[in-house]
């Protein structure tokens, strides 16, 4: 069974009297442990697509199943709990908490979302920090890290809860060329190591090449 199943999904935004269709009748399935990219020009619906799959937004029409659950019927609280348990997020601007160290940023979901005991937490964090090659930087605050290092910590935070699915919206947009390649290869390594499904969006042709499956969106439709 596919990890993500999208059936006839449309998303329409109302701007005043004007209706804008961000996504139109999308049908798609993504298998477990896939490394999938969504590409397309600005405004093509990549972010909207990721938001739908990541349970951050609800479709206007259609059905979305993630890990066998019909997420479009969830309420706010259920969606939050589902995201915390099943989905990890990597953001374009890293979105690390500036008041927490690298270690504490990774620890955050384990404490405030998963309620993991302290001993288990420590092992999980050190393991994932080691995997992303950031164990030496664990006590630094985000403003003491480079962009590439921040994104590595963000990847570690997304993976530490051992999610089935990681969503990454333009994860390399704020990084230089080398860092971008490093980050996307790290994501791929993590996918291989943990068996996690990665879905990301990008503009960058070099990054697209790294994806196993690429879906192209134009004007809210899959081509």
């Amino acid at each position: 069974m596919a990890l993500v199943q999208i059936e006839n999904v449309s998303k329409i935004y109302q701007t005043g009297d004007v209706e804008v269709a961000a996504l139109s009748d999308i049908n798609l399935s993504i298998e477990k442990s896939a490394f999938v990219s969504f590409v397309g020009p600005s405004g093509s619906g990549k972010t909207t697509m990721l938001n739908m799959i990541g349970c951050l937004d609800m479709p206007t029409k259609g059905k979305i199943l993630v890990d066998g659950k019909q997420v479009d019927t969830f309420n706010r609280k259920e969606r939050a709990a589902f995201r915390g348990n099943v989905i990890g997020f990597i953001f374009q601007s890293f979105n690390l908490f500036p008041v927490l160290t690298a270690y504490e940023n990774i620890e955050y979901p384990l404490v405030l979302i998963k309620n993991e005991p302290a001993e288990k937490r420590k092992d999980m964090i050190l393991d994932v920090l080691d995997s992303v090659g950031m164990i030496d930087q664990k006590n630094k605050f985000p403003d003491q890290l480079s962009g590439g290092q921040k994104q590595r910590i963000a990847i570690a935070r997304a993976l530490v809860t051992q999610p089935k699915l990681v969503m990454a919206d333009e994860p390399t947009a704020n990084l230089d060329k080398q860092s971008s390649i490093n980050v996307i290869r790290l994501m791929r390594e993590m996918k291989d190591k943990f068996g996690t499904t990665f879905i990301f969006s990008t503009h960058d042709p070099r990054i697209m090449e790294e994806a196993e499956i690429t879906h192209t969106l134009v004007d809210g439709k899959l081509t």
Binding site: K77, A80, F89, N95, F97, Y108, P109, I113
Partner: peptide, 16 residues
Amino acid sequence: IREIGTMSAIGTSPSK
């Protein structure tokens, strides 16, 4: 606001 969005996105419950 963006930080709150991040908290919420990664699964922090509204009560937390």
